[in-house]
Design a protein around this nucleic acid. Structure first.
Lengths: 212, 212
DNA sequence: CAGGATCCGCCGCGATACTG
DNA sequence: CAGTATCGCGGCGGATCCTG
């Protein structure tokens, strides 16, 4: 039946990009995935982090992502990505890289999220450092794992970080040059905008490997 | 004025991926870019290659892409990508890579396009060959340039290819394993499904560097 | 309160017809 | 060949209501 074929609107092209857009090309979908790439999320978390999305649309998207087996129920409630969902990270990385040209400063009314900013550091990371850093900003906790080649990011309290940094998220956006005037780690410590505890010898290599 | 802010529907997030989707996230847009990445196109070319798009929507998308300075008028009429538009290639590459998992075989009603298939070979190319190959299939001409690291593809008659291959597009899809049972270059030459002229010593390295 | 479902209005989209 | 004009529909945005 052609009614079945056309049931769901699709591109009907034998092309990887078109197939991908058939699955994750609808509005909001890739942004939901981006947020889940940082860590598991509850419905209400996503609702807060995605200003403008409505409850019905978020529910629909999560249901569709579940049906596509890109998202599954998380252990402690909420939603998490499956392996196939996590495989979308390179797509988000390249989208973020390309969109960087429109992103020098936040515009009026823009939602700003430190998680998105830290996520974008993955492609800036220069490598060569090996340590785990815990970041606490505005009630949120991030575990940043620097390895030989790549950086990992999870939103959770770092289990056993070599270094702990705490401050307002704006301080971290200054540290990494994420939409504000950049500042050195020394300035920020001097101003007490950021406080560091733990193995302070890791501080400078950490900052340098992620500097703007 | 808030009416100006909200004139165009957008995500209003200070995030590279969201900014990118504000510009190229609407339906059809990235597929138009994908086709233009293979070479300049006229309005009617795009209309043929994008089954299902309508004239008004294609006109709107091309106008928007022009306003965003991703597309500009081509020298001999039609449309071509600007530098910023070509910079979307990694996005299409990663989308295509991810979408590959849904693409083992064409489905009923799928549009099939040899250009899209050859484009996907860019990420398969193993490097190490240096030659220009002209491919002629079903009235279309492609110039495939193999270099030390990467492969380039333009839809045009190759100016001075070391090797010329001609055949039905289905034969090339067998050669590269693009949605059909793969076949070796020897089989295809034996069957006369593909005819090769020029420097035949390049034939086998070419096929091997792009094999499934 | 988390996690939705339901209803409605609007605009992006699809289809067709028409024009320079 | 390269679009524009028109219209109907469904996806999406906004608000409210429901259920454990």
């Amino acid at each position: 039946m052609s009614s079945i074929d056309r049931k769901r609107r699709g591109y009907h092209q034998f092309c990887g990009a078109a197939r991908a857009l058939d699955v994750v090309g609808e509005r909001w979908t890739l942004l939901i995935v981006r947020n889940l790439l940082i860590g598991p999320r509850r419905f209400s978390d996503l609702l807060d982090e995605l200003p403008g999305i409505t409850t019905n649309l978020l529910a629909t998207r999560l249901r569709d992502l579940g049906a596509a087996e890109l998202v599954e129920p998380a252990a402690r409630g909420g939603y998490r990505l499956t392996e196939a969902g996590r495989a979308l990270e390179p797509v988000l990385r390249e989208l973020g890289r390309w969109g960087g040209r429109y992103m020098d400063r936040p515009r009026r009314g823009d939602a700003v999220n430190l998680g998105w900013g830290l996520f974008s550091l993955k492609r800036r990371y220069r490598g060569g450092v090996e340590c785990i850093v815990g970041i606490e900003a505005d009630g949120k906790s991030f575990e940043v794992t620097l390895g030989r080649e790549r950086m990992d990011l999870v939103e959770r309290e770092a289990s056993n970080p070599a270094l702990r940094l705490a401050g307002a998220s704006h301080a971290f956006r200054r540290l990494f040059g994420l939409g504000t005037e950049p500042a050195s780690i020394d300035e920020l410590l001097e101003e007490k905008a950021i406080t560091a505890t733990g193995d302070l010898r890791q501080l400078r290599p950490f900052a340098r490997s992620l500097a703007p």
